[in-house]
Design a protein around this nucleic acid. Structure first.
Lengths: 356, 356
DNA sequence: ACCCAAGATGAAACCCGTTTCATAAACGAA
DNA sequence: TTCGTTTATGAAACGGGTTTCATCTTGGGT
């Protein structure tokens, strides 16, 4: 059966479609009696306005595109859940756009991510979304090719675009980002206060803005304490538990080993804990570990992770609110900083001289 | 500036919009020369067809609604990622509909879930999605009120609806589900083969189909082995790490304690490991633990979790493929069963008499 | 009793594609 | 050369709402 339309209602109520539209949207006064008649008919037929038609003429859809690199990385569901909370309140629905590629074996490949982002960008514009938020991927690449950046800027001319936790150098797009440098500083200062002097960093990707920022924070904190950074204690290129385990094993297997490890995210930290366990090194008594992100899993491990909270949910919430303002044509600050916060749990302890 | 439309292209190319539409969709032969002229103009103006208008007349949108209870529960991103993979290949975009409520303090509330599901159901129909997939929530309630079930059925009359890992009694909706009973049996049989005779179960919600099925599997396996189930060793109502810790603490604090615990999901199992750790009980030497779901986090813990894999990604993939068929009007089996698989890792070991 | 503003409503245009139907031209077979 | 197909293309309707503009009532003020 054909769905019922405003025309059906209008005909049966002996009014024009204009009047039906008016009661539907409350956009002009309608005689009480007429209104009631129409409302009654709508209920009777379970009338549901066709959002496509409505959006087509209104030129607004209430739809947003949310582009992220990998939904199975627990950091993103956190952000998303904050975003969802506000977006829902504001009456938006959103398309989830995951840019990761997986092959038939479910292995995650990050190589075609930028291509995916481009595809989604234009797909979303065709779908006439009211706005787009991007997190990770290209947004977090320190030096994207001219072309990549231009595409995003091009999109931003047609529809509000908001970047989360990243940047696109040489563009001036609105963004919300945690202060990554500060976050790293917080973590490292904490270790230093505990008396650690031999501190390693693991993880991240050298090309990423966020990684560079965190590394910068690390270096700053270390230098401020009058210590220096040992090259072989800076291991990058990776963000997974697997990688964390690898990196930490390399550190712990060496003749001279650090007494503390700062990890670029919690997944790495979890891997580091596992590595320590394999080596029979007790955490935090013999090795302190700090993570980054404060994903829920940070409290699942034994011992629970000391980490830096990026207030992921908060970023998501702000994103929804800000994008809504942009859509409404209001001014919003070019950059909103989110303050990271150190969460001290169980993987850090005062430095003690190895008793052996 | 106003986006360019088929009319703009048509005018400039001195043809009618019909012809433009034809080259756009390749739906009828167009003279080569004309086609090239049009294509050139499209590129020149970066023409992007308005998906709303197209969908409005085509009566198909390429949009799907994906309703799930809580994206921060790592099981769902897994399913979603499989779904994403196939859906993308098939040319669909999807709305993510999270039905959880969060209050300002970010606490997750499950109380208004069914209400949310209803809202999303009608929202999605208004948006004219081509299909809807539902997982968790109402779909997993053993005895939904008449009204709740009817709503879903009502929706299913207008648009293909596919239920994942659940059921809606008294309706005959298509679904894809792992054999929950079998999964539980696998887990418990494994424990029994290891020599365990005192086995507890924790977690789940008594009202949920999945919980009931798993409980059934548990009971079946136990009885088949000639053992019996102790009431105080069946603790339900919860699915979180927190709850797992609570339940396990209760079991381990009692005078008589089980030698193995079967957990209704991995989160609970992680909680159980933590509890054991608090009690100074070694896993798996003194206590075997089996989880359920095989979320990625199952390998993050120390020791790594023995668990039952529901092949979450596979469920997601099947979902996309099946929904696509339904949309195309093809016949699909009413129920597709996914075989669970036991993944033996490190939290289970042969039973040994307490040495004390 | 008279006028103006506000209330109530309809006709028609508009949003931007797709699709049907009709017509004209080109092509190949008889 | 003629007829039946294809090929090529346009006019117009359609999908289902919103919105502008015009018209006709009413109600309140004086």
């Amino acid at each position: 059966m054909r769905p019922v339309t405003v025309y059906d209602i209008a005909r049966e109520a002996n009014v024009s479609v204009a009047t039906v539209s008016r009661v539907l949207n409350n956009t002009a006064p309608v005689k009480k009696e007429t209104r009631e008649r129409i409302v009654a008919l709508m209920h009777k037929h379970q009338f549901q306005p066709n959002a496509l038609a409505r959006s087509l003429s209104r030129k607004e859809t209430g739809m947003i595109g949310f582009i992220l690199p990998d939904i199975t990385n627990p950091f993103f569901p956190e952000v998303l859940s904050g975003f969802d909370y506000e977006a829902r309140k504001l009456g938006y629905t959103y398309f989830l756009c995951d840019t990761i590629s997986t092959n038939e074996e479910n292995e995650r490949l990050y190589d075609r991510q930028y291509e995916r982002e481009s595809q989604y960008l234009s797909l979303l514009m065709e779908k006439q979304v009211d706005g787009i938020v991007m997190i990770g991927g290209r947004v977090d690449l320190a030096k994207p090719g001219e072309e990549l950046a231009r595409e995003v800027e091009e999109a931003a001319k047609r529809v509000p675009v908001l970047l989360l936790n990243g940047n696109l150098p040489q563009t001036h797009l609105n963004r919300i980002a945690a202060d990554q440098k500060l976050g790293a500083q917080l973590a490292v200062q904490h270790l230093i206060e505990l008396g650690h002097r031999d501190i390693a960093v693991i993880g991240g990707y050298a090309k990423m803005t966020n990684t560079q920022q965190r590394l910068l924070g690390f270096r700053t904190a270390v230098k401020e304490a009058g210590l220096n950074v040992r090259k072989e204690w800076v291991l990058t290129e990776g963000f997974s538990v697997q990688k964390g385990q690898e990196f930490a094993s390399r550190l712990l297997g060496a003749k001279r080993r650090p007494s503390a490890i700062f990890c670029m995210n919690d997944l790495l930290a979890i891997g580091a804990i596992k590595a320590a366990h394999r080596f029979g090194i007790r955490v935090p008594e013999q090795l302190s570990i700090v993570g980054y992100d404060d994903i829920p899993q940070a409290t699942y491990s034994i011992p629970e992770l000391t980490t830096v909270s990026l207030q992921s949910q908060e970023i998501g919430r702000q994103a929804a609110k800000t994008l809504d303002k942009m859509i409404a044509g209001k001014k919003v600050p070019r950059l909103q900083s989110i303050m990271p916060e150190l969460i001290v749990r169980e993987t850090t302890a005062p430095f003690t001289e190895p008793s052996a």
